[in-house]
Design a protein around this nucleic acid. Sequence first.
RNA 1: GUGGCUGUAGCUCAAUAGGCAGAGCACCGCACUGUGGAUGCGGCUGUUGAGGGUUCAAGUCCCUUCAGCCACCCCA
Length: 427
Amino acid sequence: MKTIPSVKGTRDFYPEQMRVRSWLYRTMGRVSTLFGYEEYDGPFLEYMQLYAAKSGEELVKEQAFVFQDRGGEWITLRPELTPSLARMVAQKQRQLTYPLRWWSFGPMWRYERPQKGRSREFFQWNIDLIGANSPEADAELVAIGAVFLREVGLEPSEVQILVNNRRLVDAQLEMLGIPGEQRPAVLRLIDRRDKMSPQAWEAYALETVGLEQTQFAGVRVMLENAALWEQSEELVRLFKALEALGVGEYVRYAPEIVRGLDYYTGTVFEARDADGEFRAILGGGRYDNLVAAVGGTPLAGVGFAMGDMVITLVLQKFGRIPSAEELAPAPVLVTVFDAETQYESMAVATELRAAGIPTALYPEVAKLGKQLKHASRIGAPAAVIIGPDEAAAGVVTIKDLVHRTQQTVSRQDLPAILRTLRPENPA
RNA sequence: GUGGCUGUAGCUCAAUAGGCAGAGCACCGCACUGUGGAUGCGGCUGUUGAGGGUUCAAGUCCCUUCAGCCACCCCA
């Protein structure tokens, strides 16, 4: 093993893995487009201040890839896309037509310890609706997430999008007499409930967070109240819209969902596998102050992000990732018989390509057996043979590698016959 | 950043109590000089992740380091 190792927390995408990533990208793009969203992208590099504004310089330095360029500026490999989006919107705020419907898929970097479902370099789908401020707009984003899950073959019994509302939680905490500065700690408390034993959780609530006994009891009641959403007009309208959008069965109210991010102001949601085996598949919510935070005038938005790793783990668990062969139908292989006929082979390959048939030409003279073996190795459905006999008669032999049959046909008929042998293109 | 487990051939893994590094698969060749996945025969493959130490002798024991996995932390 003398090869230079790959950078910690990065992944190589050999064609076998690249097919899966491309398939996810195509599906994300198709769903985004179905809802009228346009693709965009931001730079991979941003000034550190863009993120520091939100979460503090120390946090960014610890959890992102940060370096100084030759001019001494602190540059960050983007750890998320939303700040770039907010910056792009703020920069052209008066030139854009609202509401914006934008989506993107690209790499992000976070300097963290790699583990299951989390690496230092990953790919993330971001989709946002900006310039609309209604529960119905929130519902559209939740619906997009649900339609994606349905598109990749996941059932409502396997994955669910859990929805809550920060304003509803806030109102409840207000009623319990929990002051504003204490609420972030309470949100963390709520977030941790299923990670701790009930005793440890209670101790954490009373001692670390500093809740009164009655306040703690009130929080617990809130988390048990599956009907609490009925007290939130926003959530009532949201769920009604989700029914109308046809994704009601993928979504449910979950009082324990609060999301970690501070910039969410209203609806928050995340998708989880039903068994709770994995981290959140996607997460998002409404943010009303983000554009203003990067220098624009206030503009409300709602969106979510989905990383490529957890969704892939979930899809693997449920066996929903199409096989490598389905995702990458191999081209037809044209064999090369000998030095004389190889130009005939090239001409045939050129004709096939002109007819739009992906065609691989064997790159040198070799035994037929070796070439046919190679053809079946790469998953080609058919091989074309042009030996001296075929060349003399102006015909070609086509071998169906799946059914192990062959026939000799004219060159004009070859494209049409090959098309009948090619496997169906999957999505 | 903290802790645990694991690193042996291209891949999956063996190797009694420290005692000559092995098997299956894969690959290459031949049987089969115009026909692939089967079968048979033959063949190739290693700084045992890296560095140091103990020992007559280290894949094995000790130290250091790197990577992967897992949990914690965090989660944009």
